[in-house]
């Protein structure tokens, strides 16, 4: 059952050249205890999606429409104050560049303490302290680090602190925006292992936003692929890797170097992403698509369920993919 239901979420950025449609009618469900990967290149709207779901997008970003239901409550209907209460307690964010999310002039302990105290003012102080110790231990940090300032910690350790903070108020959902970008390969792997661990232990729903298809496909049960502001494909990881339906997903898969296929020639996706400020009729990927036909320039394809639990926004996905019926 879906804890998080996103329907028709649309966000624009006001620019000098008009509105840039950064998020175009996003529909997404996130189940309890599920890890869903949201993949896309820079500027495809995946970060905007994260912030729009939290409704914490700042001007020039403006949410035009859409609903975000969190365990039945529509976040759009909440007042500022109620929303703030919901964030952290129900849904928390691990931001991009999490290493910079820590205040360099406060000790780790006081930063987590503050986060808990604001959201749960009634909890006694010693209980909070005890919880901080447990939190740090559960993210693999010795609790002696809590009296350190952030600059004493390595990138991976800071990332762990940020994850601990996100967990502080026992949310049901965590949105992790490029949570491992900029870390070293092994540290990345360890952070992913940590996310996987807390997902299972806390029965958390995690929305993992990333550009790294190879990594995400290893840890997520489902994957959503975004292109130029739209979700173009959504389905179980296995099905997408075996049988990608959208031409963009297919191209993305063949453009990646993998350790298994170092002898296979990788192919770049020719062409460039269309400008988001353009008013677009038809499919946004058509200029770069090998399979484009007349219809692609006339009508924008909608996200449709092509096979069970496998959605795709392409007019010809039934012909192009190897669809399992039934």
């Amino acid at each position: 059952m879906a804890v998080l239901e996103v329907r028709g979420l649309t966000t624009v950025y006001k620019t000098q050249n008009g509105d840039a449609l950064a998020l175009d009618c996003l529909d997404l469900d996130l189940d309890k205890g599920e890890m869903l990967g949201l993949i896309g290149e820079s500027g495809c709207g995946k970060t905007t999606a994260g912030y729009s779901i939290l409704r914490s997008i700042k001007y020039p970003g403006v949410i035009l429409q859409g609903t975000v239901r969190l365990a039945g409550t529509d976040l759009a209907q909440l007042s500022e104050a109620e929303l703030r209460k919901h964030l952290w307690k129900e849904i928390a964010m691990i931001p991009q560049c999490a290493m910079n999310a820590l205040n360099p002039s406060h000790k780790i302990n006081s930063q987590i303490f503050e986060a808990i105290e604001v959201h749960e003012p009634k909890t006694p102080k010693n209980e909070i302290q005890a919880r901080i110790d447990t939190l740090l231990n559960s993210v693999g940090l010795n609790s002696r680090w809590k009296d350190s300032y952030p600059h004493k910690l390595s990138g991976g350790m800071k990332q762990r602190v940020v994850i601990a903070m996100a967990l502080a108020c026992n949310p049901k959902i965590i949105i992790a925006d490029e949570a491992t970008t900029g870390l070293d390969v092994l540290v990345q792997a360890q952070i992913m292992a940590l996310l996987k661990k807390i997902q299972i232990e806390h029965d958390l729903g995690i929305l993992l936003i990333s550009h790294d298809l190879a990594m995400v496909s290893q840890v997520c049960e489902r994957i959503g692929i975004m292109y130029a502001g739209s979700l173009v494909e959504l389905g179980s990881t296995d099905r997408i890797l075996e049988n990608a339906l959208h031409p963009y997903t297919k191209a993305l898969l063949t453009s990646q170097v993998s350790l298994h296929g170092i002898h296979k020639i990788v192919k770049p996706i020719e062409g460039i992403v269309p400008s988001l400020t353009e008013k677009f009729i038809g499919c946004k990927f058509r200029d770069r698509c090998k399979h484009r036909r007349e219809l692609c320039g006339i009508e924008m394809p909608k996200l449709e369920e092509i096979e069970r639990g496998h959605w795709c926004a392409c007019h010809f996905s039934r012909e192009l993919g190897d669809v399992i019926h039934g």
């Binding site: 290149e41 790294d212 990646q256």
Partner: peptide, 8 residues
Amino acid sequence: DVSVRAGI
């Protein structure tokens, strides 16, 4: 971006 890496 991932999609242009292969080209380079």
